[in-house]
Amino acid sequence: MIKNICVLARLAGDAIMSIYNNNINCKINKKNDKSPVTNADIKSNDIIIRGLSSLTPSIPILSEENLIPWEVRKNWQVYWLIDPLDGTKEFIKHNGEFTINIALIEQGIPKLGVVYAPALNAMYYAIQGKAWKMLDGKPIKQIHSCYIYPPSVAVSRSHNCMNEMNEFLLGLNNYNIIKIGSSLKFCLIAEGKIQFYPRFSFTNIWDTGAGHAIALAAGAHIHDWNGKTLNYIPRQSLLNPKFLVSVNSCYL
């Protein structure tokens, strides 16, 4: 299964890159919430949904670009959670920091996750409590989160809450700041390059599901600011609470 999902992510990535590498083909629109959506988002979404529907026809799919009414999904026990292009703003800025996120949710827990950054040719994936990275076709290596001093703190390029962030940073004696977009923040935690990712603005569940699976399998901890583990049990709101991803569960 995990190999098939990685192949599917690459196919979607190829479609995204065909637009990314030729800006004249990029079409940008606004959603109802004023966030941007491009034809690359839509093409990637179509490829992933067709692929998952073929691979696992009995498992429903929730995607940012294919929202399902609450009355339909409220009793889902297992489902696919998709962001076909996470970091659309980074895609538009042409900085390469965008990903394809595919997660399998079982009983509210992300059991399988694939995050593919096509512009970086970096594939991260996790299943059965283990996480791996493949870069530029080089041999696959298992990855683990780890604490390094001074720690690095991930900060979103597009969403910052400076008062809360500054308060968090005051609790660290020393630190480095790394600004990066999309679910790559989860992946860098998973491979030990970042130690904290504090999030003070709201995210949607498709922004975090796949990255959550990878960071968790690599040994990291993902909690809201009350110490509760993020979960993906179907609920009317598609928003996550504010959260912290860290290599130290005792920080909260």
Score class of each variant (00 low, 15 high):
K133V: 15
I143C: 09
N173A: 06
S152A: 15
N166F: 05
F200E: 02
W225A: 08
C161M: 05
S237K: 07
Y232C: 04
Y232D: 01
I140T: 14
H212I: 06
L135V: 15
P241A: 04
I214P: 05
R235I: 01
I180Q: 01
E167H: 12
I143D: 10
N231L: 01
G181T: 01
F186S: 03
S183I: 02
S158F: 13
S156M: 09
N240D: 10
I177R: 10
G129M: 02
Y124K: 06
N240Q: 13
I233V: 15
G219T: 10
W225I: 09
T203Y: 08
I222F: 05
H159C: 09
Y197V: 06
P241M: 03
A217W: 07
K185E: 01
C146L: 11
C187L: 01
Y175W: 09
N248C: 08
T208R: 05
H221G: 02
F196E: 00
P151A: 11
C187E: 03
G129N: 14
Q195E: 15
Y251R: 12
A213H: 08
I178G: 00
G137L: 03
Y175E: 03
C187F: 02
N226R: 13
M162K: 13
A126W: 05
F196T: 00
P139G: 02
V153A: 09
R235D: 07
L170S: 07
L252A: 06
M134T: 14
H221R: 06
A210F: 08
N176A: 03
G171M: 07
G219F: 05
P150Y: 10
K133L: 14
K242S: 08
P151G: 13
L238E: 10
Y149W: 09
C250A: 13
F200W: 10
N248L: 07
I222G: 07
I180S: 00
I178H: 00
K130Q: 12
F196W: 05
L188W: 08
E191S: 08
L216Y: 12
I194G: 00
I127P: 00
A218W: 06
A126T: 04
I127Y: 09
E191M: 07
I143L: 09
L184I: 15
R157C: 11
F202C: 02
F186P: 01
T203N: 14
V247E: 00
F168E: 03
A210L: 12
N231V: 01
A220S: 15
I178N: 01
N166A: 12
S201P: 00
L244H: 07
N163L: 08
R157W: 02
A190E: 04
G192L: 05
E191A: 03
K133R: 15
E191K: 13
Y197W: 12
Y232M: 05
I214A: 08
C187H: 01
K130N: 13
T208H: 05
A213Y: 08
C250S: 15
I233Q: 13
I140H: 01
T208N: 13
L239V: 04
S182W: 01
P150I: 10
V247S: 08
A215K: 07
Y251H: 10
N240T: 15
G192R: 04
Y232T: 03
G192C: 08
A218D: 08
